[in-house]
Design a protein around this nucleic acid. Structure first.
Lengths: 333, 333
DNA sequence: TCATTTATGCTCAATCTGAGCATTGTGCCG
DNA sequence: CGGCACAATGCTCAGATTGAGCATAAATGA
């Protein structure tokens, strides 16, 4: 069925030459105590011993769809029920893969999953990490991250160090767009673009396959490395999630059955990396009808008890499916 | 390097078992005379002779990235310069692929490309089609598409025909969400969900591999079929594009160097399938600073001549990168 | 009891949106 | 040549949404 015709190589999707190695990678996200967490595993490292990486596995031909395959595979191996699952991106970068298995083009199909509990942390080799450990510049909840000073300096040097001045100017433009250097605003969704920029600028040890050799000083500024190019996958996931919570009620996949509005806000803030105006946040949630009150209230903690609410499942049937608009406030720390 | 450990199959992305056949599919979009078009080719059909399909080809291991590979491949074969290229989705559905090449899992990585001209229509076997020929229910510019009457009736019958009443209710919910049946609103972004629903309901001939045998009556209501599952890919592309134009200035990839505001509006309307309020549209474009005036005006046509404008490339460097908010008006036909 | 802390209610100005009316240039038709 | 039809363009206005803050309520703990 393979056939080239008149300049078009028209191929049946089912019968192609050049078989490739295809893997699945999962970014499994939870939010506990107002911190965003990703499930990681220890993998055999490229350079040194063992490194932190994302759960990954082979594409299993037994399953009818990619997503169902991933779901079954992860749920079986982590005892973790996956609620929301969404395909993220397919990575096929040759020189960015860990290693090239001789001629086979290798692809990784990445998925984002949102889960409620963290029981599987009990599993050996698997553990939850605050995702900002890997991308520390993305957390603005306590104000501008200190690490950005060092990063900006290095990025500016990188831009200035371009041989062609035109290239240098383009680099500076990108610095403005992504990191807001030079009067630009910080757009919390551009997580991947920021990571890519750091990668290109040589600030990411994974770029040279040296994830295992990152110096402590580097980790302090550019974060903890991951095996292969998994930080890129994580960056993709965070960016996607930050965008999605604005127009789809996906945060609730991360919440327990009942919760307070402030817990909800903390979770949204954890994901977006920015603080929100409290009163306006509740107004938004109320207006959209995202939650309904229970007759329980919290107790024990300091301050006035908060009413517990639950997600109104019906909103999934209402249009347009709402989410959260993120409007940062000046509250910090 | 393949290794299972403690419940996690941890695999280096580059060394996986089960090689798969991987293909690339491209949805190449242009907009001419206010109509949205997709580039199609004639492919050897599954059942009957030759069918319409999307340009597709094998993954070429020579290229450093998937996107660069696709770009080079399409540009060479269609003489069509691809401006904007974006990865859409990776399809791996087993039973939805055209045919299964014995044991190999087959994937299609789909891309969306926006182009300006349509020269390659000159190529034999390749031609441009109004994309609503394939998804006629998606075009609301002349009011509610007539085809929806027939579709709704069949969908309601499908929901009512569920053996389990619970399943039936869930189907009805989905009808409301996607097609707005039962008091719901039409959300122009849910193109894929609508297609999937029709597919499940058995209204899409491709579902049984009968794309080539669709009856004329069916084509009138559920649109022209495509080879394999390419209509699903097209639906994905349209949905994505409709979402994207709202927050990124991507429409300009489809416009000639200079154009009138109304031409721009027509293009946005063509993509979104809905009409917009003219004065508000210009206000939006002006406010956002998306275009700058040239000193030329149109002439020859009826009515007052319009000023020609051009896209302000600088907006790509301004934050947050703006797009179009789509607010339908009552103007129709 | 009072200070502290958090939850919750409410106000207000600025801006944004959706809708429509009015005016301005052109080509075209008697 | 005057007037008409037709788009383009300018402008207004009420209602809704946003961003920010003040005020009050209901707990805990010294």
């Amino acid at each position: 069925m393979t056939r080239a015709q008149d300049g078009f190589a028209v191929e049946a999707a089912g019968a192609l030459p050049n078989p490739s190695a295809v893997g699945l990678v999962a970014v499994i996200v939870a939010a506990t105590d107002g911190e965003p967490r990703a499930l990681t595993v220890r993998v055999p490292g490229q350079a040194t011993g063992r490194e932190t990486g994302l759960p990954a596995g082979p594409l299993v031909p037994e399953h009818p769809t990619l997503e169902r395959g991933l779901r079954a595979w992860v749920e079986r191996q982590t005892q973790q029920r996956l609620g929301y699952v969404e395909q993220l991106y397919t990575f096929g970068d040759r020189d960015r893969q860990g290693d090239d298995s001789g001629g086979l083009h290798s692809l990784s199909v990445a998925y984002l999953a949102l889960v409620r509990e963290m029981r599987s942390a009990a599993l050996a080799e698997a553990s939850w990490h605050n995702w900002y450990a890997f991308l520390p510049w993305e957390d603005w909840r306590a104000g501008r991250p200190a690490t950005l000073d060092g990063i900006e300096a290095k990025l500016l040097a990188w831009a200035a160090g371009a041989s062609d001045p035109k290239v240098g100017r383009r680099r500076e433009d990108r610095l403005g767009l992504t990191f807001g250097i030079g009067g630009g605003a910080w757009n919390e969704e551009r997580v991947l673009e920021r990571y890519e920029l750091l990668f290109e600028a040589g600030l990411i040890p994974e770029a040279q396959g040296q994830a295992g050799e990152a110096r402590v000083a580097d980790i302090a500024t550019t974060g903890r490395p991951m095996a292969f190019d998994h930080r890129r996958v994580l960056a993709t996931a965070i960016g996607r999630l930050r965008g999605k919570i604005k127009y789809r009620p996906v945060v609730f996949e991360l919440m327990p059955p009942t919760f307070t509005l402030f817990q909800l806000q903390r979770t949204v803030e954890a994901l977006s990396g920015a603080n929100l105006h409290k009163q306006n946040f509740r107004r938004l949630v109320a207006q959209q009808g995202l939650v309904e009150e229970t007759d329980e209230v919290t107790s024990g903690a300091a301050g006035r008890p908060a009413r517990l609410v639950r997600f109104r499942r019906e909103v999934l049937l209402e249009r347009p499916a709402p989410g959260f608009r993120l409007t940062p406030s000046r509250r910090s720390s």
